[in-house]
Each structure stands twice: as structure tokens, then as C-alpha cells.
């Protein structure tokens, strides 16, 4: 099967005061349709630069990047690439252009020259998917952060992209808003086989991905399942990553009580491991 995204020796650098500043060094990875991948790494590790390459906002300076058969190489192919790769940014206020919820989704469709009679049904469909249909006539300014972010997502969904990149899309939201957006990611991935790339600093979110790409200083340090990533303490230290609170707790408990180490990823796993310890 042909992969959806293929990076081969992907590099990105920019010139500053005559010198070349390298941001990404020789990245190699591929993603298939339907993958759910988390990208983690310290501030400045190159995560967002990578996202911007995937969306043809930046053009690779060396190596190749192929998105659904189209090579990201110049402005000519950018439009094709962007049809398939949607981006949801950190701050929904920077992404939403209209004043009413449904108008914001319509903006995307008008730009794609969708016939006007088709626009209304697509708006309804996408707003239903993100649970904002009831508020379709509301003013965006009256919405909560989580609701705004869901409108931004609806705008992206209207394009029917094969892949959506969430670039720290939950970092400004309160706990419930964060859960809402995360649930949409899961639903899109599960029910619509949309490829999801979640760039995040919240390790509790990373747990839901099938795979994690760990970045440091413009390199990919490791690519693996969340369980293996969170079990690799040496890697975590090297990449300055933390773990979910329950994982941290259980690691510390094992260390202090000389128990065999075990990596628990979420609340239920932690409860069950503790029940075994305390009950057995």
C-alpha cells in the first residue's frame, strides 16, 4: 500500500545573516491513511516546522516529502497538498475568520468553489460531527475556548482532508475543552479513518496515539508505541519529556518499594495494577 506521507532525508534550513540555520536534519518516516500519531519534543525541537512542511507552508530545503503522491516542492504543488492536509492551530482566534459559526465553515467551502446549493448540507454535516450544530447561528465571540476550537475543526473537516494536524490545539483550553477536542480526534480517526497528527506537550494525550514520534534538536530520536516510549526512561530524560501523572506515580512507587517496574498509561491501568498489589 502506498503511504499517505513519506519523508526521505527531509531537511529544512533558512539563511540568516549569510549563515545557514538548520532546523530539521535528515528526517525519515512514513504515515499511512488512518494512523494516529503524536509528535512530542521540547520547545524549538522542530515539531511545528515539520507540521508546516507537511502543509506546504514551508518547502523542504533538501530531501523529499511526498503527501498522497504529490511532492512538496514549490508553490505549484502547495494547493494540492493543502487539500489533503488540514491544520488546527493553537489559538482558534487566529484561525476563525467569520463572526457566525456557520459562516466560518462556509468560508472554507466558498474558497474551494463548492456550488452554493451543496454548501449548506456540508456545513450541517461537519458541525454535527463536532457537536456544534445547535450553535450554528451563534456569534463566535460568545463561545468558550473549546467550542471555538471545535468550530475551527469543523472548518477543516469541510475540506474533507485525508489528514489533520493538530498543532498544540489543546494548549489554551480548560480540561473539559481539551477532552472535547481529543474526543473529536479519536472519533475522526476511528469512524472516518482520518489520519491524525497530534503535536502536544500533554503526555496524557499522547497515550491515545498508536505511535509517537519523539523529536529533539531537529532530529527524530525515536518512533514507537506510547507504552514503549514511556517505559524508556533514558529516552525521556534525553528528550526532556515527562510522563502522565499516573505513570510517574507508579514508577516512583516501584522504585521506592523495590517492585518490578511496570508502565501504566492511564487511570484504569493504574487502578488495576494497584488493586493487584494491595489486594493480592
Amino acid at each position: 500500500m502506498q503511504s499517505l506521507i513519506d519523508a526521505n532525508g527531509l531537511c529544512f534550513s533558512y539563511a540568516k545573516e549569510g549563515a545557514n540555520i538548520d532546523i530539521l536534519h535528515n528526517l525519515n518516516f512514513s504515515l499511512n491513511q488512518g494512523d494516529f500519531v503524536a509528535i512530542v519534543g521540547h520547545n524549538g525541537s522542530g515539531k511545528s516546522t515539520l507540521a508546516k512542511l507537511l502543509n506546504a507552508l514551508f518547502i523542504p530545503t533538501a530531501g523529499t516529502l511526498v503527501v498522497d503522491g504529490v511532492c512538496v516542492q514549490d508553490g505549484q504543488t502547495a494547493f494540492e497538498v493543502r487539500k489533503n492536509i488540514g491544520m488546527v492551530f493553537q489559538n482558534p482566534d487566529n484561525q476563525i475568520v467569520a463572526t457566525l459559526v456557520d459562516e466560518d465553515v462556509a468560508f472554507v467551502l466558498e474558497n474551494l468553489c463548492v456550488p452554493s446549493e451543496d454548501i449548506a448540507p456540508i456545513i450541517d454535516e461537519t458541525l454535527k460531527m463536532v457537536g456544534m450544530y445547535e450553535l450554528k447561528k451563534s456569534a463566535v465571540s460568545k463561545l468558550s475556548g473549546g467550542q471555538k476550537q471545535r468550530v475551527a475543526i469543523a472548518g477543516i473537516l469541510a475540506m474533507k482532508p485525508k489528514c489533520i494536524i493538530f498543532d498544540e490545539s489543546t494548549s489554551m483550553l480548560d480540561p473539559i475543552g481539551r477532552k472535547e477536542v481529543l474526543n473529536i480526534m479519536k472519533k475522526l480517526n476511528c469512524e472516518h479513518k482520518t489520519t491524525v497528527i497530534n503535536i502536544t506537550h500533554y503526555m496524557e494525550e499522547v497515550v491515545f496515539a498508536d505511535r509517537v514520534i519523539v523529536m529533539k534538536d531537529g532530529n527524530i530520536l525515536k518512533e514507537d508505541m506510547p507504552r514503549n516510549i514511556f517505559a524508556d526512561r533514558e529516552l525521556l530524560a534525553k528528550a526532556n519529556l515527562s510522563v502522565p501523572q499516573v505513570t510517574e506515580f507508579f514508577n516512583l512507587l516501584c522504585d521506592r518499594c523495590n517492585l518490578d517496574s511496570k508502565t501504566v498509561l492511564d487511570i484504569d491501568e493504574c487502578v488495576s495494577a494497584l488493586s493487584d498489589l494491595l489486594g493480592g
Binding site: D174, F249, I267, C270, L274, L278
Partner: peptide, 20 residues
Amino acid sequence: MGLDIPQITKVLFKLRQKGF
């Protein structure tokens, strides 16, 4: 109110529900 409690508090809460 759209808020939450720490993960670890939830874990212990669930253990208590189980009778620990």
C-alpha cells in the same frame, strides 16, 4: 464546572470505591 481533579486523586478515589 468544566474542571477536573488530579489524575492521582482519581486513581485513589476509584480504589476507595472498590473497597480499599
